[in-house]
């Protein structure tokens, strides 16, 4: 039934839909808003109390999503601190895409700038690791069919133009903190006081069953993989590192393919 206007309950100045949603959005982000004037009074409750239900739904549901991605980070700082920091983060950098599953990339960087965590740099580093871990689960599983024979047939004059491709399901991680040690302690539920102030280089590989294999790398291996991910040609790589590490990358199936890339010089 179409409702007759209720003169007693009309908003003092009616907003159009855009204005209303603008005001409602500001209210959800705890910014100044007149949306309460547009709402009916409910017996016993103020409009602000009713709006608080939606603010809670927003912050709590997005916090749950962050907890799902950053569960070990939460373990490190405790649920109360995590909830408090997540709330600040969500209100400052709310989700921008209508799919909560892709939210949280900036959270580790937010943590790394918090003064409360200045003495615990491993917290933000663990968050960076967990974000990368989740991204690795979404990588394309690439069948490895590296053609070693074709590589052997490359004309030596073209060696410097070879461009190796790192398999798409492999990602690398670098930290000034020993995140691998911390991660192992957390997954084994055996966290002990220890010095984490050591650099850490890791390879994350997605397995066909969607688990992630975490392997320690040397700094040289990490650098080489990074350079290859940046599409650097063989001729631009340091020969000594290549000599030491290339066979490792091939035998461990990190290199998925190669191509010869000759860029034409400007006329």
């Amino acid at each position: 039934m179409i409702k007759p206007p209720n003169q007693d309950n009309l908003a003092p100045s009616s907003l159009n839909l855009k204005q209303l949603q603008q005001q409602f959005s500001q209210s959800l982000l705890y910014q100044e808003s007149d949306i309460a004037l547009q709402l009916k009074e409910k017996q016993g409750f103020t409009s602000q109390q009713l709006l608080q239900i939606h603010r809670n739904n927003f912050v709590m549901s997005v916090t749950e999503s962050l907890k799902s991605t950053f569960k070990y980070t939460e373990q490190l700082v405790g649920a109360d601190f995590f909830d408090s920091v997540a709330r600040q983060f969500i209100l400052r950098q709310p989700p921008a895409i209508n799919n909560i599953i892709v939210y949280g990339e900036q959270f580790p960087f937010y943590l790394s700038n918090l003064t409360q965590l200045a003495d615990m740099p491993y917290v933000a580093e663990m968050a960076k690791f967990e974000w990368l871990y989740e991204q690795c689960q979404k990588t394309v599983q690439q069948p490895i069919e590296f053609d070693l024979q074709s590589l052997q047939q490359v004309n030596p004059d073209d060696f410097e133009y070879i461009q190796f491709s790192i398999s798409s399901h492999c990602l690398i991680f670098e930290s000034s903190q020993n995140i691998n040690l911390l991660y192992q302690m957390l997954i084994n539920n055996n966290v002990e006081a220890t010095n984490l102030d050591q650099p850490c280089y890791l390879l994350l590989e997605k397995e066909p069953n969607f688990t992630i294999k975490v392997t320690e790398l040397s700094k040289q291996q990490w650098q080489l993989i990074q350079q290859l991910q940046q599409k650097m040609l063989l001729g631009a790589l340091q020969p000594s590192i290549l000599q030491e590490q290339l066979s490792y990358l091939i035998t461990t199936n990190l290199i998925g393919d190669f191509s010869i890339v000759k860029v034409k010089e400007d006329q």
Binding site: S25, L29, Q38, P94, P95, A96, I97, N98
Partner: peptide
């Protein structure tokens, strides 16, 4: 509605 001008609220917000 759940989003407005690039912010997604992950909630089912009431329509007038």
């Amino acid at each position: 509605w759940s989003s407005w001008q690039g912010t997604y609220f992950n909630d089912l917000l009431p329509v007038p």
